[in-house]
Structures are given as structure tokens and as C-alpha cells.
Write a protein that binds this DNA or RNA. Structure first.
Lengths: 121, 121
DNA sequence: GCAAGTACTGTCATTTTTGACAGTGTCAGC
DNA sequence: GCTGACACTGTCAAAAATGACAGTACTTGC
């Protein structure tokens, strides 16, 4: 189980710890999903899907499964019909928010610099 | 030019700024290369290659080209024979170190947690 | 009895990333 | 004249990530 985890830990032994975070957090829409879960604290699958236009259901499922396998997100299934599944951040997921904040701050500065260069007129 | 840059800025418009950092910093060995450049401040291609066993010359070149295109690393060519090329961090690259530090701290905690789960005996 | 909502899974195709390996030009030293 | 150091590039192949699309089970409402 937990393919990502073992891959990431292997990276740490071989290279450096920052690559673990890169491996775990860098997936299509993963930072955004984490961001939404921080704001709302609990979201159902459909709610997440509505907040991620451009990402297919299949893609969302994959990202959530990986986040779950890596222990950042918990998944709670209610045995009802129609089905109800809730996603929320785990403690580890909450701790990762500091990293995402640092990434967002730097990313913004990077983007502004790029825009200034691309369109200096 | 600067394919990564445009891709990353696009991500920012569509999703969130943290994905920019993820896109720019998450490449094979990129955090490690940045780490070495921080420690040594200047490194030649061969010196970097020796510090990255397991990464081929081709791979190192690719990562360095991307880091250069994204403005994190500068490349200085001395017109000598045999050729001499120096790599160092740009201001933007130095600023990214804070992000990499945050990633490393969280990555370490993540790895330790994973190890404790994997081998609890 | 038919459609809609819910949360998915399976599978194939495409794109992106990485690995492997051969080749390049110049010069110093043997 | 041959080898090695240096810093690469070109190209193909394999692997990984993502997109597209169809299908599933069950129930409520019309």
C-alpha cells in the first residue's frame, strides 16, 4: 500500500527532504484541493468537483486517492443511498498548509516577475 | 521562450499560486541542485554532476536548462578550452530557498511519520 | 418505467517526464 | 596519434501523469 509514501521516503534517503514535499504536493490540482479543504474544512466529492472545473471526475478521484494514501486527507463514507462521502484534512494535511503558504507567496512573486518581463510596455 | 514560465503563470490564473511553485520546483533532483548551489554558491557542471550520482549528464543538463529558463539559476560560460561553465543562484533562486526549507521541514516530518507506521515493531 | 443525483471504477489514448546511450569539438599530456 | 577532461546535444525508449469517455448501483421523484 501507499505507493507514494514509499517513493517519497526513498527520495529522502537518496537526495533531500524537500523532494518529498515536492513529490507529495505536486499533482494536478492538489494544492488547490488542499486550499479548498482548508477553507471549508469538510467537503463532499460533488462539492469538490464543482470547485474544480477543468478537472474531470476521474482526475479528482485520482488526486483524492493519492492525498488519502499519503495521509493528507481523510475520507469518510456514510452508508447511505445516494452515497455520501466527506473529505477533510488530516493533522498532517493541516501541517502541510504552512508549506503551501510559502509556495503560494513565492509563486505569486515569481508570476509577477514573469509578467513584468513578458509585457514590459 | 520560457515554456515553464508561461505554463506556471497560466496555472496561477486558473487555480492557485502554490501550484506555480510546485511546477517550477518539482523536477527530478531540482531541490537537491538548488541545495548544493546554496551551499557552494558557485558550481561548475562537472562538480554538480559528481554530486548527483544516479542522475545522468543528460538529466542534469535538462534540469539546469529548466531552472535557467525559470530564472532560478544563472549560467556563465567562459570562452576557454576546455570549456568552463559556472552555475549559481539568481536572486529569485535565493528567495526560493525559504520555500525549499519549508518543504524540507515538512518532508522530514512526513518521512518520519511514514517510517513509524511502516515499521512499528 | 424513466430520468436524475451520488460517488465512483475501468480502460484507452495522449502528453509529459525521465533514462539510456551515442556522438561532438578542442586541447593538454603521454 | 591516442586518451581523457570538459560541457554539452540528439535521439529513441520507457515510465509516469493526465484526459476522455463509458459504465455501475441504488433510490427518490415524476
Amino acid at each position: 500500500m501507499r505507493p507514494q509514501t514509499q517513493k517519497a521516503v526513498q527520495l529522502w534517503r537518496d537526495r533531500c527532504a524537500a523532494e518529498i514535499a515536492a513529490t507529495v504536493l505536486a499533482g494536478a490540482w492538489k494544492p488547490f484541493i488542499m486550499h479548498e479543504l482548508r477553507r471549508e474544512s469538510v467537503l463532499r466529492f460533488g462539492e469538490l468537483a464543482r470547485r474544480t472545473p477543468g478537472l474531470t471526475d476521474r482526475g479528482l478521484t485520482r488526486q483524492l486517492r493519492e492525498l488519502e494514501a499519503d495521509g493528507l486527507v481523510s475520507r469518510t463514507v456514510y452508508p447511505e443511498v445516494p452515497p455520501k462521502v466527506e473529505y477533510r484534512l488530516t493533522d498532517l494535511g493541516v501541517e502541510a498548509q504552512g508549506v503551501l503558504d510559502a509556495m503560494a507567496r513565492w509563486g505569486l512573486a515569481y508570476a509577477q516577475r514573469s509578467e513584468a518581463e513578458t509585457a514590459p510596455n
